[in-house]
């Protein structure tokens, strides 16, 4: 199985991708938790999604299994759709309260 993977790819060990993706994901999580601007939070969410994408792509390449990469495309497509809706919501919110601070949006409760 090892032999089927091109040399180019093997020059960067798999662990590097994992560490990189973990770092990227953590940055995303921290960003979501600490920032209050809806757009930045949104971007951080994208960061987390892309961290997962990187992982998927990496494992897919190392295992020579195209399924993972197909999955990445799906995620990208869904993320794009989600961005469209999410940004739309944020724009609407901005139009209403002239702000995108999520702490001002505390009416989302029972």
């Amino acid at each position: 199985m090892e032999s089927t993977i091109p040399e180019v790819i093997r020059t960067v060990p798999l662990q590097h991708y994992v560490f990189f993706a973990a770092a990227l994901f953590s940055i995303g999580v921290l960003g979501v938790l600490t920032r209050r601007n809806a757009i930045i939070i949104f971007m951080c969410v994208e960061l987390m999604l892309n961290a997962v994408n990187v992982l998927l792509a990496a494992f897919s390449a190392y295992r020579a299994d195209p399924n993972g990469q197909v999955f990445v495309f799906f995620i990208m497509a869904v993320a794009a759709a989600e961005v469209a809706v999410g940004l739309g919501i944020i724009v609407m919110i901005y139009r209403n309260i002239q702000n995108t601070d999520v702490n001002l949006l505390d009416r989302l409760k029972w």
Partner: peptide, 17 residues
């Protein structure tokens, strides 16, 4: 239990994490 529902996204997210 309702008081956990602050309406703040941060709290929800924190709790989720």
């Amino acid at each position: 239990l309702g008081s956990l529902q602050t309406g703040r996204v941060e709290t929800y997210l924190l709790l989720m994490v």
